[in-house]
Amino acid sequence: MRTRFLLGRVLDLALVLLGVSFIVFSMIRLVPGDAVQIMLGANTEITPERVAELRARVGLDQPLLVQYWDWLSGAARLDFGTSIWTGRPVSAEIAAAMWPTLELTLLATLVGAGLSIPIGAFMARARGSGAEVAVRVGAIAGLTIPSFWLGILSILVVTSAFPGLSVLGYVPFTEDPLGNLQRMVLPVIALSLPMLANLSRLVRSAMLDAMGQDYVRTARAKGASARRVTYVHALRNALIPYVTSVGVAVGYMLGGAIVVEQVFAIPGLGRLVLGAISERNYPLVQATILVMTASFVFVNFAVDLLYAVLDPRVRR
């Protein structure tokens, strides 16, 4: 039974990736202009023959289906081709850009998902108190403030309060752990805040729901403390919608990372794909989006597995 479940998911994954690859392949080509034109855009001392020559060199003169098939059969062997602009293998470009994004989203998810449980539980328990209202207003602000604005503002505030503190760019953790974390603080805050706000509100309402259930009243009646009822009985049940939302939020976080990387000058996947789109670097766009899609699907796969842990009924 379980193997079948796994096999089904793997098949789903393959279908999703195939579909996404086709959509991305067609969409980026529907956008007018190609890499050669953009490459030549500003320096215009060029004849049509030279354009054709350059286009042939990067393989853009082939029919679309041939291009797609070539790319697909390469991708099946994990060969994603070379970047049109730099001539480096696409896989190397992605590997280099992956770590900053991975670190950023991981830390932001830990902060966002981790803090939302105590905050949400607090809001549910202290409902209506002054402190709870303040936190709730904060949560709404966190949901509505765009991360690029928050990012720029936090850079300006921090650099004027602590001139000389490096908060921009990226240093690999292995090279300079302190410098790495120091530069991660602001982007992680900017990236995790919407998730934190969203999930806290969700935990709050799920907890309130759970606390109105019969089993909570029963637990209280048999003498369990209010704290125990909140954190053991109600929380565990409230976690199921929470886990689903975390999976979805990680997907949105990849989108948010594009903006945050742009603001904080972090050389991650978001900037890679953004640059690739505006340069019409087709192989790079296709592969990067494929990697992002795959990670989104994997996270949600992991979420499905987590259900089984939280809710015994799913295991059947």
Binding site: I152, V167, L168, Q262
Partner: peptide
């Protein structure tokens, strides 16, 4: 990429 970021970086 962000000009506000570049400015902040110059000041810092």
């Amino acid at each position: 990429p962000e000009s506000a970021t570049a400015q902040a970086g110059l000041l810092s």
